[in-house]
Design a protein around this nucleic acid. Sequence first.
DNA 1: AAAGGAAATAATTTCGAGATTTGTTGCGAA
DNA 2: TTCGCAACAAATCTCGAAATTATTTCCTTT
Lengths: 234, 234
Amino acid sequence: MEDRYSGPEASDQGTIYNDISERLAAGEFAAGSRLKADDLRKHYGVSSSTMREVLFRLAHNGFADFEEQRGFRVPAASMERMLEVRHMRILLESEGARLSIANGDMEWEARLNAAHHKLAHIEVKMRTAERLREHIAIWTRFDWEFHETLVSACGSQLLQEMLKGLFFRYRQLLVGLVTNYGFRSGTVDEHKAILDAALERDPARCAQAICYHYSFLDDLDQPESQVSGWQIRR
Amino acid sequence: MEDRYSGPEASDQGTIYNDISERLAAGEFAAGSRLKADDLRKHYGVSSSTMREVLFRLAHNGFADFEEQRGFRVPAASMERMLEVRHMRILLESEGARLSIANGDMEWEARLNAAHHKLAHIEVKMRTAERLREHIAIWTRFDWEFHETLVSACGSQLLQEMLKGLFFRYRQLLVGLVTNYGFRSGTVDEHKAILDAALERDPARCAQAICYHYSFLDDLDQPESQVSGWQIRR
DNA sequence: AAAGGAAATAATTTCGAGATTTGTTGCGAA
DNA sequence: TTCGCAACAAATCTCGAAATTATTTCCTTT
């Protein structure tokens, strides 16, 4: 008799890590709330030590805050923190795109096109989707794949790793700060602008397009101006 | 009767983490070698779980590589990896310095002067020191404090955190790649050039000085040209 | 002698209980 | 009512052994 529970089948560390990070990126846990090791332990059917390790891995990737003797918390989603992450994303992504444009071959162009195609498809679909929640996970993956592919020919493994961390941190903060899981209809055109600039091998215009992709944040502070149906959470 | 051992007195996680990272930054463990959890566990007198957590923390800060079911290893110190870390350091440090120059007040200038003074003092002393090994830990700290202070007025906590990780990763790789623990006599003038450019509020010249500070790496590939008495490890 | 495989060895990973620390509640005094 | 303090409750942190998985050794087979 199994008195475990009926959750995810395989509950190894990697699976649990991915599951929790997805749930965090989908805004399931309120920003600033405690990640109770004991509750999660029971939910996934593992021991406290295993859960602790997973939480440490999440913490060191920026998904959670850790304080000694005080456990783990979902990082508070402040606009200041958000702007800092955006700043770093723009800096690294522009540099990575610049190098990719300089080094990338036709194979890179093809992969970028493919990644954009998948992303555009889901984004157009989501514009009229009923239940946005169901598409967030796959959209997040395609979004990341596009941004990852953009810098994939930069020649620096390190830059790509750092950018990955920033991407998911950004998403987590965004979901905590706004409604609609951070989805906007405007992203379709913005991603297209980045793609076009990259394929035309224009680093300056590409950097500009990347900048514009994140510029909506500046409008969020003014409550009267709505950004594609968004609202700041209260 | 204590059959523990006679090492560091307080063996909490933070202390062990700092001790191991210092040993790694001093090149005590050969690059590519295994970090045996059991040996370290015995050395510090803690359980395997505690040591495992410390190793995870080290791994997530780039001090160690982790592979599932295969334990922890000292990252292989390759020149490629080194150039990647240098690239990111230049990018982030130039940006951080630029913002600090724009935002920093007189208080920042004073702190930068103080940090440089301490750093210059130890570096001049090390030029003629007998046993370099003894000064590495304190030199590393002052070196970091100077670079940290340089960007401390940039207004981004995130940039500073990322730069800190890069700094120690850089040091670990350097120690693994060259002799003399990565110390060069040329750093004295280079740090002075960075300080002067920052105090004169010249971002472009500051970025140039930062770039020059790391440019010695380009000469390392040519074996005939010696960089201030350095040699590449074989 | 070389290659393959099975047993032996050595490492990592998981577990659950106990020790330690933190947070909370209730009581009494100012 | 407010503050301090002590006892209680709930969480984290550590531990060492057991289970799992990788590595080495050595014997068999080709």
